[in-house]
């Protein structure tokens, strides 16, 4: 608990704003998935997003990466506003890494090629350099020996760690995680969470959608609770888990804990 406390009292007030959302709304047809979401995420901050299924968590972080486009409001990433301008999008995408629930590795490429693809083609790195960087990343996520296998040959946990390495290979300033452990068996969850913890400690700015309360308690600087496309409550893990203000948060916690 003391470890968690120390994490949550990290003073980030002096840090610059990494992501700013202001009144972001999004509709799927007639259905409103995001309702005026406003939040600011500082550099090096780790934010965990919680909420019941269908509350718009995925939609929100996908908007930050411009995989979905919002219809109202402003999203600014590292000082660049997301518009329909293609150049902006490309810049944002190479600064924001994303890890998906279903891994989405490229099944026809080896692990190494999965990781080096974007550095070579987007960052125009020499292949040798990209490969040694990729091997270093694989080392970091704990699977250096899997470089030449195909994704189909790996376990779920290993695949997800490759996916993290693939995102890190672009040297992003922000990492988005959309339920990275929900498709995994319990014994694999830990290996992925360990990698994420290490990442958080190294000072990466992270937004993590997850149902892993232990992880939230231990690593998060802040927790955002969403429901029905709205942010219901924001607070430190301590505040959030010991005495949440909103009834809906209490209800959610009582169901999940």
């Amino acid at each position: 608990m003391s470890d968690a406390a120390s994490a949550s009292v990290r003073d980030l007030s002096g840090a610059t704003n990494m992501i700013e959302c202001e009144g972001v709304s999004k509709w799927y047809g007639d259905f409103q998935a995001l309702n005026s979401v406003s939040a600011t995420i500082k550099e090096q901050e780790v934010v965990v997003v919680l909420g019941p299924s269908g509350s718009g968590k995925s939609t929100w972080i996908r908007c930050i990466n411009k995989l979905e486009h919002h219809q109202e409001g402003r999203i600014v990433v590292d000082g660049v506003e997301l518009t329909n301008d293609l150049r902006n999008i490309e810049k944002i995408r190479s600064e924001v890494g994303m890890v998906f629930q279903q891994f989405n590795l490229f099944p026809h490429l080896t692990v190494l090629d999965n990781i080096t693809l974007a550095p070579i083609w987007v960052r125009k790195k020499p292949r040798g350099e990209a490969e040694s960087a990729a091997r270093a990343l694989l080392d970091r996520v704990g699977i250096p020996e899997q470089a030449d296998k195909y994704p189909g040959q790996l376990s779920g946990g290993q695949q997800q760690r490759v996916a993290i390495a693939r995102a890190l290979a672009m040297e992003p300033r922000v990492m988005l995680f959309d339920e990275p452990t929900s498709a995994l068996d319990p014994e694999m969850i830990k290996e992925v969470l360990d990698v994420m913890k290490g990442l958080a400690r190294s000072g990466m700015t992270m937004i993590v959608v997850t149902h892993e309360m232990g992880f939230a308690r231990e690593v998060a600087d802040r927790i955002i609770f969403m429901e029905d496309g709205m942010i219901v409550e924001v607070g430190t893990p301590e505040h959030f888990f010991t005495n949440p203000t909103e009834d809906r948060t209490k209800l959610f916690l009582s169901q999940i804990l």
Partner: peptide, 18 residues
């Protein structure tokens, strides 16, 4: 080709043509 593949490709910064 699963939609996730396209999304993953754009998430790591590949252009549409790439």
């Amino acid at each position: 080709v699963p939609k996730g593949q396209t999304e993953a490709a754009s998430a790591i910064g590949l252009k549409r043509s790439q």
